[in-house]
Amino acid sequence: MRLSVKSATLLTLLAFVVVAPLFFPSSFYYRVGALIFVNGLAVTGMVILTGWAGQISLGHAGFAGIGAYACALAPEHLGLHPALAVLLGAVISAVLAWLVGRPILRLKGYYLGVASLGFGILVSMVLNNERDLTRGPDGIDVADLGLRGLLKDAGLDLSNGQFWYFFCGFSLMLGAWFALNIFNSPTGRALRALHGSEIAARTVGIDVPRLKLQAFVISAVYASVAGSLLALQNKFITPDVAGFMHSVEMVTMAVLGGVSSVIGAIFGAAVLTLLPQVLTVFAEYEQLVLGLIMVLVMIFLREGVVPSFLRKFRGNEA
């Protein structure tokens, strides 16, 4: 029997999360792994928005920034538990995505790219300049989630790196599960349909602007939660999380691995998170190597690395 895409993706992720630590040369790699999972979560949202709904966002780091700073500010100023701060950040991101997307997504074309770009820059500027609240470019401390302590009391003593590795790993699996549920649902079909032919989608009764807006809001929540997890595990966050480069990074990761496939996009996140660690020896050329990889992938593996190879593999099989 052939595995469904959903089971195959989730099993691959589970296997990776559990098995990878056996090969870690040092505990530092727990941290790298956790970063991969956080980035993987953010790009899973990009798959829904870009891969399925066909919309581009160049400001998703703005939502990551909101998620991150919600965890920094809400516990301190509102007395919220950090877990509730994650939720608050997600709600704020969803509302802002709705407000930005609603007027823009009525228009045809790539206006969302421009509008989201502006939105991202705006968030970044606020985080940098509202020093009284955000402490500006130097960054701000983030409260402890407290979950690791609870686990320790329950008899499961994990190091900080281990805890965040597994916590982010399982968060990513949950996020992937949600996304794959959507893929095969009426909503997912409608999204992929409007990407395939907008006019045909409208004639079968799909409310195209509304569906695009839903995809944008959902993907914003993904980015927001990813930002929150980043802030919580670092216990510190700077406005860079909302920077334009971070937005571009998210798009690049998804496109490199395969923007229409959840496991592909996560693979892209893994590669682009690992590369800078590997390339530290010749750090000066890091950007050059990244650029070269992107160009080669776009020329030879246009659908992204994972879908291209899967296609090849299945092609040989037949």
């Binding site: 949600f178 959507i182 009426p186 909503t187 997912g188 079909r189 409608a190 079968v204 009764g205 959902i218």
Partner: peptide, 12 residues
């Protein structure tokens, strides 16, 4: 679509 679509949250 019109017959099968419902709340996004249920699909999610």
């Amino acid at each position: 679509h019109l017959q099968e679509s419902g709340p996004v949250l249920a699909d999610l």
